[in-house]
Design a protein around this nucleic acid. Structure first.
Length: 429
RNA sequence: GCGGCUAUGGUGAAGCGGUUAACACAACCGGCUGUGAACCGGUCACGCAUGAGUUCGAUCCUCAUUAGCCGCCCCA
């Protein structure tokens, strides 16, 4: 007995309806991004490790443990991409796209990313992300709001109901440094009573303490300073503008002063999106602005803003009704389903199928071994419009059966062109 | 990486240390009628995640491995 081979831990096979829904989500989001002037891009699935380690900042030692390394010969240390942002930045630098007269640059992407983590529901080792990145020498409020609105609106359209938008403003790099110091100062005397993880966070990334789930630490966190107290006047003004736009558009948001995106490159606006019907899934997407990432990886002093959705989480957020609604526009239902019951087969049905396909029809066929009853059931399941039945009771002809109306007629097969034009004339949608 | 729970056909699942591993749905074959529903009859796990062990005997007990789920770490 042969050994069975399973898919690797934390990966998924997309089959049948799920695959169709996945494709539909992807095309809906792409179309939405294009409404905002974004262009699609593709970048490699693996990159030099240092791209991510540098791009990711202080906490990189932890992060690098969660990357999929590629053991390759030679001097290059490659990893499977754990995210798109750094790779898209690299693309902009390498292709000198920053020299474009048409700023801001607006890109969208969709594809797999890889993280070496312990899998759980909605949390895989290979997951797909759809996202955007906008670039400019200085990301202004217009670009910021376009990104934020695209983030909210596209998901709202997809899921068909309002979502929970959490936002926070991390301010400039300087504000960030001051805030970090203030936090350290605040926690220093209390550290003894806090959990082990927080001790480590204190050293590695103080901001993360704010996310601690230990009850006693949660209490302490309530007293912790807010980053909004450390914003410059300019930052505050920008935050207020963003809020006023959200309010005038009736988008309900939650200003969450404890929202800290994981990586250090974020400056300015950060945001996350939750589905109120599926809060246990965690954020279905997140993003923010970053001020110096491009410069850090050897590019010009450009700023960026971007977000990504987790495609699998979006898929999990859709109920069956919503999925069916999405698939309404899916082209793929069969027009013709060929059933050959003759004792002596010939190749006529195959030639006919080829001809019909070149006319633009969707055509499939049944297995020779299947009986008529089973074949019709199959045609029904495939949602085909017509069955073309070849049998020995009607030599040199074919039964053209309208599966929706359950009517049928017998048509001569002596002339292929004539048959095709008959089908064209009678069954063109 | 740490801790916990779980694993039986295409699906949902019952089951017990001992001969044929229930039942239902789906699928397939046949009947009614060579034509999709319903109904009736039949078929469908050489096998209980994988590997080893205990035992006269294991799907059931033990261990390891793999995978899923949940919590933690982390979450780009």
């Amino acid at each position: 007995m042969s050994e069975t081979i399973n898919k690797p831990r934390g990966t998924l096979d997309f089959i049948a309806k799920d695959k169709k829904v996945y494709d539909s989500i992807r095309s809906l989001l792409s179309a939405y991004a294009e409404k905002y002037g974004a262009e699609g891009i593709e970048i490699p699935s693996f990159e030099e490790k240092k791209l991510f380690v540098r791009g990711v900042g202080e906490s990189s030692d932890i992060v690098s443990k969660e990357m999929f390394g590629l053991d390759v010969k030679g001097e290059h240390d490659y990893v499977l991409r754990p995210e798109f942002t750094a790779g898209v930045n690299r693309m902009v630098i390498e292709n000198k796209l920053y020299a474009s007269p048409d700023l801001p640059l607006r890109f969208y992407y969709c594809g797999p990313v890889f993280r070496f983590e312990r899998p759980q529901k909605g949390r895989l080792r290979q997951l797909s992300q759809f996202g955007i990145e906008f670039f400019d020498s200085k990301i202004d409020i217009q670009t910021t709001l376009d990104a934020l609105l695209l983030f909210y609106r596209a998901a709202e359209e997809l899921l068909g109901h309002s979502l929970i938008l959490k936002i926070n403003f991390l301010g400039s790099f300087e504000s960030r440094v001051k805030y970090r110091e203030a936090l350290k100062e605040f926690y220093a005397p209390k550290l003894d009573s806090m959990c082990e993880d927080c001790h480590r966070r204190y050293q590695q990334n103080v901001l993360r303490i704010l996310d601690c789930k230990v009850p006693s630490d949660v209490e302490i966190n309530k007293e912790a300073p807010f980053i909004t107290d450390f914003l410059t006047e300019e930052d505050k003004k920008e935050l207020n503008t963003i809020i006023s736009v959200l309010e005038s558009l009736n988008i309900s948001y939650k200003l969450d002063p404890r929202l800290v995106r994981g990586l250090d490159y974020y400056t300015g606006l950060v945001f996350e999106l939750y589905d109120p019907m599926n809060m246990d899934l965690g954020a279905i997407g997140g993003g923010g602005q970053y001020g110096s990432l491009m410069k850090e990886i050897g590019g010009p002093d450009f700023e960026g803003i971007g977000f990504s959705y987790g495609m699998e989480r979006l898929l999990l957020s859709l109920d069956e009704q919503r999925k069916d609604a999405l698939l309404k526009n899916y082209k793929g239902d069969l027009d013709f389903f060929v059933i050959d019951l003759r004792k002596e087969k010939d190749t006529f049905p195959i030639i006919l199928e080829d001809e019909l396909r070149s006319e633009g029809y969707y055509v499939s066929s049944s297995s020779y071994s299947k009986a008529l009853n089973g074949s019709l059931k199959m045609a029904d399941r495939k949602n085909a419009s017509y069955a073309l039945i070849f049998d020995d009771y009607n030599p040199d002809s074919v039964i053209v059966k309208n599966l929706k109306e359950r009517s049928q007629e017998v048509v001569s097969t002596s002339d292929l062109d004539q048959l095709v034009s008959y089908l064209n004339n009678h069954f063109k949608k």
